[in-house]
């Protein structure tokens, strides 16, 4: 493989609160290869959104990135000035938010919002004058058409509230894609949507990824979505990555007790009449956590030897797990 498009190493993002220091992301490594779709799964508080908000440089006080490298195409984004980062954000990496209604500006037309993105990041546009305005308009129409909005010419003049939830999500994707980014980070793009609309939006993302050759990070809590759309997956728990590997392998034979618990928690028609086995307890508070396995309080396999820092270990081709109960692959 060529050089990874995104490589995050040892990322630690903390929030200083009155109750104590919340370590929302603690030592996270993520790699995204060119053209791949990486799934990031975890429950609320797992740190999946904060990890990628850190990548985008969107962490504001009281939050701060305490340690780690964020290499995008070999450049450490943490070393960039605010202005340089502004150029990367949107042009090279774009992010869509879960809630399209609050992410879009209610006072501006959809056309204006797409044009803003193009103004800021598209270098191929004519320099000025009516030619530039025409080109921007044409590109905006093209983008709305690309995400499957009917009669895009007329709908450019409309405001976000005039669109349905699924269409707003697609408009946000259109804005994110307007500058042809190399990496799209989609944070729960379909959580607020109904299944039939969810299927449309995810297929749209697949389709555009194939056509533009970009990489996608799909942040979701839905393992079904990951199974059908992602090449690789990382599972996060309480601010750490606990399992990583090719999607089929991770879902087919999960190695971390948390991943197994998550899969066993999904109610399925095939399991009718059998009790589901939920994971007992709840996600720990992330304030001043001791350096030990974060899942041990809920883990059926935990023992006293889990009360120490646990490192990720390789357990197969491209597979890593943060659990001492899983035998490591015999090294060469």
């Amino acid at each position: 493989m060529s050089r990874p498009l995104l490589q995050v190493r040892g990322l630690r993002t903390v929030f200083d609160t009155r109750a104590g220091r919340v370590c929302a992301v603690d030592g996270v490594d993520v790699t995204v290869e060119p053209g791949e779709c990486l799934g990031v799964v975890g429950e609320s508080g797992s740190g999946k959104s904060v990890t990628f908000a850190s990548v985008m440089g969107l962490i504001r006080p009281p939050g701060r990135i305490e340690a780690g490298e964020i290499l995008f195409d070999g450049v450490d984004l943490r070393q960039l000035s605010r202005r340089q980062m502004q150029a990367v954000r949107g042009r090279d990496i774009a992010m869509t938010m879960q809630d399209a209604l609050t992410a879009l500006n209610p006072a501006l037309t959809v056309g204006t919002q797409i044009a803003e993105m193009l103004e800021a990041h598209d270098d191929e546009l004519p320099r000025g004058g009516p030619a530039r305005a025409r080109a921007i308009r044409a590109r905006a129409v093209e983008m709305l058409g690309l995400v499957g909005i009917p009669s895009p010419d007329d709908r450019l003049k409309q405001y976000p509230h005039e669109f349905s939830g699924g269409m707003r999500q697609r408009i946000m994707i259109a804005i994110a894609l307007a500058s042809k980014p190399r990496l799209l980070i989609a944070d729960e793009p379909t959580t607020a949507l109904d299944v039939t609309i969810q299927a449309q939006v995810l297929e749209l993302i697949d389709d555009i990824r194939a056509r533009l050759g970009m990489s996608v990070v799909l942040i979701t809590h839905d393992l079904g979505v990951v199974a059908q759309h992602c090449d690789r997956v990382i599972v996060m728990y309480a601010g750490q990555v606990v399992e990583e590997g090719p999607t089929a392998a991770v879902i087919g034979s999960p190695r971390h007790p948390y991943t197994r618990g998550l899969l066993a928690s999904i109610p399925r028609p095939a399991l009718r009449g059998q009790p589901i086995r939920p994971i007992e307890g709840q996600v720990p508070e992330l304030i001043d956590l001791p350096p030990q396995c974060r899942f041990h309080a809920r883990c059926p396999e935990a023992g006293p030897d889990c009360l120490r820092p646990i490192e990720m270990r390789r357990v197969g081709p491209g597979r890593q797990v943060r659990c001492i109960r899983t035998p490591a692959e015999a090294g060469p």
Partner: peptide, 22 residues
Amino acid sequence: LLSAVPKVEATARTDRVRLTGD
């Protein structure tokens, strides 16, 4: 509705019927 539900079991993409429109 049933065909739109992403299933954990099927890693291969199932033949989906895409409903058009909202």
